[in-house]
Amino acid sequence: MILEARSVLFQRGEKQILQDVSVQFDRPELIGLIGPNGAGKSTLMKLLAGVLPCDGLITLGGRALQTIPAPLLAQHIAYLPQERTVHWALNCQEIVALGRTPYHPGLFRGPVREDDQAIETAMAYMDVHAFKDRVFKTLSGGEQARVLIARVLAQETAFILADEPTNGLDPAHQIGLMQLFRRFVTDQQKIILVSLHDLALASRWCDRIILLNKGSIAADGDVADVMTKTQIGSVYGVSTAQLIIGERPLITPVDLLKQ
């Protein structure tokens, strides 16, 4: 199934947040969405997830997102926001179970075996079994992030849109998460879009990079094509160093560029 944005505009008040953004996701891959603060990454994520309405056209399988019934859409696209919001003292298992909401749009149909299975699998992937009965607020930042990602996995969607999911994780968990996303791409043919501030993580693990700058797409393609010295330099204002590890480049910012 293809998720496509065509000439998408988004405005908040006077401010133009996104302009003329066209992008297409049609094959299993791990896509890194990068760009400086305020480039419009989170807004683009929300638009693609159908959380925000927009001018222009975003389609899933040829149908405009707005015309797809919300529960059906939620069976195809999962969205993980940047903020780790959990109201009330829910425990981790309850939070992961909320990922099954799209499969029960009615009021009375209770959880079935597939739900329990999906919840169990998601918790196993994210290694959160040990604290499944604990209240979310009592967990460390890293543990909280893993629980919320498990909720997304329990939703069992073809598309996962995750807004800075590595935020607040230690290096081991950051790498673990990126590897897990890679596994989902190869084993389960998922299409995963993650926004990242960490250029090293993006260059090391993503198949494709979308570079967003001031509300427009500056570049979209392979890591080597997008994350060039000049491109990163002009968008971020930083110099970069590059390592080759295996076959893949690893790009990391080094210093501010003198204007």
């Binding site: 929300k46 997830a49 159908g50 959380v51 019934p69 919300a70 529960p71 059906l72 859409l73 939620a74 069976q75 696209i77 999962a78 969205y79 993980l80 926001p81 903020e83 919001t85 959990v86 109201h87 009330w88 829910l90 939070i95 909320l98 990922g99 909401t101 799209p102 029960h104 749009p105 009021l107 919320l148 909720r151 939703q155």
Partner: peptide, 24 residues
């Protein structure tokens, strides 16, 4: 009021997530 039960559960994760879980 009872018809809102599922939606209220999903709203525990905030409006955006509730929306992305298929809640009107």
């Amino acid at each position: 009021l009872f018809s809102t039960a599922r939606a209220l559960d999903a709203l525990s994760l905030g409006q955006d997530v509730a929306h992305s879980l298929g809640i009107h």
